[in-house]
């Protein structure tokens, strides 16, 4: 999930009786699965929650380019380089779709980006982990994009029209990302030498738990989920999505011939799901707070890119203003 712990600012969900007429009409639309569109009336807290969630999602796409950029200059073959470039290009594109959806709520992209750089806005905790070997490009595609897709498929039905439409577009385009990642790993496992196989296992060992953390805290520790679910900004709970991800991923892991670093992982005949061990929540909250291995670096890099580019953006604007009349033709 690219959005974690999105604050709704709501302490207690209002019952139908406690709602104003406007709020009731709004909730009825939500309940009837009618999409909310930019100019429709909406509760201020719904709007704020959406801004937080969509921008967090957008920031994640953009920051997510950095761990991949770390390897794009070192991709081992021309084909792998082309695939990775296409994927990175998509991430930037998805960031733009999402910022564009967010702007329909009356905020500007530049303000959102500023919030990211000041540390006020968050992005997915996963991108604060480093990519240390080439197999990480495979594991990121398979596990990280895989986890994101589980969430995004559900979000295609989110209640806000522009967000839902960008999710539909993103899901359509992202289907190749996960396959691209899995194929990198499978090739290394099936046709690679011992050193390559070790790279794959090492990548999975490091990225497995952080991938599970992408879905956010356990439902009992997720105070904002209820309101988000009632507004249908979220459509399924963190634990449900996490379980679905694990259930669909473990068989793929077995095909690879790899393991995950969880001694408690086993198939539960009774529930029809995999049981798994306890996530290191302490680590999760520390990474969210800014204490992950790459937090500082990621933000500084993004901030530097945008700050260093200010003169370019200013110049383009100045040029357009000088030639406003001739451009209008």
């Amino acid at each position: 999930m690219y959005a974690q712990m999105v604050d709704t600012g709501v302490k207690k969900i209002k019952t139908l009786e406690e709602m104003t007429q406007e709020e009731q009409a709004f909730q009825k639309k939500i309940d009837d699965e009618i999409k909310i569109e930019p100019k429709d009336w909406m509760p201020e807290k719904y709007r704020q929650t959406l801004i937080r969630q969509i921008s967090q999602h957008a920031h994640s796409e953009v920051v997510g380019m950095l761990p991949e950029g770390n390897w794009v200059t070192r991709a081992p073959t021309l084909k792998r380089k082309l695939q990775l470039m296409a994927k990175i290009q998509d991430e930037a594109g998805h960031g733009l779709y999402l910022y564009s959806a967010c702007e329909t709520l009356g905020v500007s992209r530049d303000d959102l980006v500023e919030d990211l750089h000041s540390g006020k806005a968050k992005y997915s905790s996963i991108f604060n982990y480093p990519t240390l070997n080439w197999a990480d490009m495979g594991a990121v595609g398979w596990l990280v994009d895989g986890a994101a897709i589980v969430n995004q498929v559900v979000l295609q039905r989110t209640s806000y029209g522009p967000y839902s439409r960008s999710m539909i577009r993103i899901c359509k385009e992202e289907s190749f990302h996960q396959r691209q990642g899995y194929e990198i790993l499978l090739t290394m496992m099936r046709e690679g030498n011992d050193a390559q196989k070790q790279m794959v296992q090492d990548a999975i060992d490091r990225l497995w738990w952080p991938s599970l953390m992408m879905f956010g805290p356990r439902d009992d520790d997720s105070p904002n989920s209820q309101q988000s679910l009632a507004w249908k900004i979220k459509r399924q709970s963190n634990d449900e999505l996490r379980q679905r991800f694990i259930d669909q991923t473990i068989p793929q892991l077995e095909v690879l011939g790899c393991t995950v670093p969880d001694p408690d992982l086993k198939w539960n005949e009774e529930t029809g799901h995999y049981d798994f061990g306890e996530i290191q929540w302490q680590e999760f909250y520390q990474v969210l707070k800014g204490n992950g291995p790459c937090n500082r670096d990621r933000i500084r890099t993004r901030k530097k890119a945008i700050d260093d580019g200010a003169w370019v953006r200013e110049a383009a604007l100045a040029h357009a203003e000088k030639h406003r009349d001739s451009n209008a033709a």
């Binding site: 953009v62 380019m65 950095l66 991949e68 950029g69 794009v72 200059t73 021309l78 084909k79 380089k81 082309l82 470039m85 296409a86 990175i88 290009q89 930037a92 594109g93 960031g95 733009l96 910022y99 890099t301 993004r302 530097k304 890119a305 945008i306 260093d308 580019g309 200010a310 370019v312 953006r313």
Partner: peptide, 29 residues
């Protein structure tokens, strides 16, 4: 051009630069 990844002056340029790089590497192949 790949070295620009994540460092371009605007997100739009991020896509454009990667796009051009992608074309060039494809041609090289």
């Amino acid at each position: 051009l790949c070295e620009w990844c994540g460092h371009a002056p605007a997100l739009e340029e991020e896509i454009a630069i990667m796009n051009i790089g992608l074309d060039l590497i494809g041609q090289c192949r």
